[in-house]
Write a protein that binds this DNA or RNA. Structure first.
Lengths: 196, 196
DNA sequence: ACCCTGTGACTGAGCGCATAGTCACTGTGC
DNA sequence: GCACAGTGACTATGCGCTCAGTCACAGGGT
């Protein structure tokens, strides 16, 4: 998740920060909580990161990049048949959010605590998700396979399904991330299919 | 929204708190922000509410009760035809969240800042939404009108659509709350309709 | 084998500041 | 003169972040 360019201690700090931010929120988390969760003293955080906000930025940036890689995987985007492709994209998006729901919660709910510049960086990344979903829906609609009412609205609805699950999903329950992905993939196809 | 049992000043304070909490989050909002937003001195808040958390509780409790009234309106729940009824329930839920998206944002995202007892109170209210939606889906499925894959999962998906819109919806754009409600109502019916 | 010097991760103590909440008081309507 | 909404000044606390200093270790000269 965090990539290879980070040492072990910074990774431990990010792990601790993710747990704290996801559970209590950015503002309710103290830098002492984060350091203590990594087994370090309060000042240790500032050896590896310039500020508390920088920690949040690293988490959200790397989180979004990881999720984006999953929906832009050619094995998914190059599927020719429109419904199968849409199903696969939604399934990959949903499964990632379910499997990494703790990181995903921080990525979805704490963006407002970023500086203006960092917030804009993340917004840029987020627009790409929209593009991927939109392409899939537009392609199927142009082919006449889908009966889409309103492309932008239906795309937003599909993204909502994946995003909102970070609010309630927990690992170890009845649904595996892949089960849930498959189910939501099916719902997405139904969303662009006209009623009987 | 706030009911008749509250004086004008407490209502003004709740309005100010809603704006602050929605924009910055509960923890990033100071009691001074709230009082100043109501044109009062810092200490004035404590004349009407015992604590900052109590203000949040009033907002979330009254918000949830207001939304619940809308989906439990007999004009909606007593519709006999299953698809029409489901469409109407989802439309009412979505339109309420769109119209009151600022209050709704506080109701959805700041629950973790409530005390344990207050959080449990709100959770109790929230379970009732699930019941209303579940009844509508189960009825249609039992009548053979719906081809529901998994009732609990599909109900959660419908709630997700309404809840997640508070993250991005703004009044005054292309979609009116009622337009969006109608659109999502249609999506919900499609979700329980088997593909061609 | 020995010290000397430099380096960088890490710490304990603490600074400056902002916060939630308090309290004695004031003004006003009844 | 009483009740009470509202105030200004205050306290105690906890926050993000800093900084001088410690420690383990690496490399090189003798």
């Amino acid at each position: 998740m965090w990539g290879d360019d980070l040492g072990e201690v910074p990774r431990t700090l990010l792990d601790s920060a993710v747990r704290c931010f996801a559970e209590r929120g950015f503002h309710a988390t103290t830098t002492r909580d984060v350091s203590a969760g990594a087994g370090l003293s309060p000042a240790a955080l500032y050896v590896h990161f310039p500020s508390k906000e920088a920690v949040l930025y690293e988490i959200t940036r790397r989180g979004h990049e990881s999720a984006l890689a999953v929906v832009r995987d050619p094995a998914v985007t190059d599927i020719p048949e429109a419904a199968t492709r849409l199903r696969a994209i939604v399934a990959a998006f949903v499964a990632w959010h379910a499997r990494h729901h703790v990181v995903a919660r921080v990525c979805q709910y704490e963006l407002a605590s970023l500086t203006a510049e960092h917030h804009e960086d993340i917004r840029r990344l987020r627009r790409r998700f929209n593009t991927v979903f939109r392409d899939a829906v537009v392609t199927g609609t142009a082919q006449g396979v889908f009966a889409t009412g309103d492309v932008d609205r239906v795309v937003r609805a599909m993204l909502s399904l994946g995003i909102d699950l970070v609010r309630w999903y927990r690992l170890g329950g009845a649904d595996s991330p892949e089960d849930l992905g498959a189910f939501y993939g099916e719902l997405a196809v139904r969303m662009v299919t006209a009623g009987a």
